[in-house]
Design a protein around this nucleic acid. Structure first.
Lengths: 124, 124, 124, 124
DNA sequence: GTGGTCTAGACCACG
DNA sequence: GTGGTCTAGACCACC
């Protein structure tokens, strides 16, 4: 599983790890019942402190995305892929809606909003 | 001038104040040479700490959006409206581009991205 | 607010803090909009590490029992007392039901179960 | 002998096995002088690691609930049923007393405590 | 080997 | 002053 972190982002590292793991599960990089990388392994791969990974994994456990197998590690839950795909979609939808809402609230002309969306959403 | 703050946002309050004042100037709520509300007045209106407003105004002064008039307060600079309008546009463009970039990186299908943008950008 | 911890309990300390704070709010020891003790203050009072308190408070924030006031501390949410009272009740109900279920599953005679409950629930 | 495990319980698996075996002996599922299932057999039946069963059996040997018969396996001790029945009773009594103590400490009204006990102890 | 918990101390943004 | 984040390292139970 390959995760991309931005250490300079305003978003906390552990939060980026949470999101990235969800995206990885959504994309099928780890299947249900398979083990996600161990805390120590992922920490080494990402060159961050194991506790940071542990905190991310704790969040994923709270949300029942992964379940602990005592002494074995953490396994992807059966319904995790579907929920992760849905969440990935919801995150984008929520952020986009908020962005448009803010733009409208700032009185940025609708015409300019539409132009920017058109120009930026095809190319990338 | 009416500013909308979100105290639970990840964005710092003083930073929201900076942006909102710029948006107000861009929209013509305060014209060049007119005074923006005093630190105490705005702090009271927004129910936030005067220090927070002061910090926002300091930033606006650094960017020459407002200029100090000794003993009078802060006045909107002559070229502020134009620059604020441009910045308002740039903020939206930058954020939207970043959002699409993140969505693509998460492997959210292009089809879903386009659907959400279409559904959400007309109605609001 | 007075919290009682059992450092030798199987239950994690941070989890005991979470429960105890909820019970305190349920009992009206801290009212809505009031601040709960700061991380450092409570840690000192309980003679435990501030990070342990911080972790408990993080959980309470995730559950919207307390909300962060930037630079001010953590305030009790408006609907927290009601939810804490309900949760306090639910915790006891769940544990008692589970206990009885286990006792029945172990084939402990119903007669003995009833005797113990009668003997132990009046006196205390 | 049928044992019920809860892999997500806070109680350790080996400890659940110890308890469940005791409850089985208390209920007469295995009589004195009879053999309990072998480590491998029970591990397979419960779908857990043989080491976990072995550790549980070691505990049962330490308490003289079962005794080793060289080359044969583990046999139930003569006085085990009586002691297991007594322990089964004591476990319930201790846990119930603790539960009520905690409920009272949380200031859950006595009225509600009594209601829940009444409602939950007859039906199940 | 695995994760869970706790301690300790640093640095940061915010008010 | 407040909480938030990250690092570091210890000890534990479990498999």
């Amino acid at each position: 599983m390959i995760l991309s972190l931005d250490l300079n982002s305003a978003q906390a590292i552990y939060d980026q790890v949470v999101e990235q793991v969800k995206f990885g599960i959504a994309a099928g990089a780890v299947l249900p019942d398979e083990m996600v990388p161990s805390v120590r392994e992922l920490a080494k791969e990402l060159a961050i402190n194991p506790n940071t990974v542990a905190r991310a994994y704790r969040t994923l456990q709270d949300e029942n995305i992964v379940v602990a197998r005592r002494g074995m590690g953490l396994a992807v839950a059966a319904d995790a892929p579907e929920r992760c795909r849905e969440e990935r979609r919801a995150i984008f939808e929520r952020r986009f809606a908020q962005l448009v809402r803010d733009a409208v609230a700032s009185h940025l002309p609708l015409k300019e909003i539409r132009e920017i969306i058109r120009a930026r959403s095809v190319s990338e």
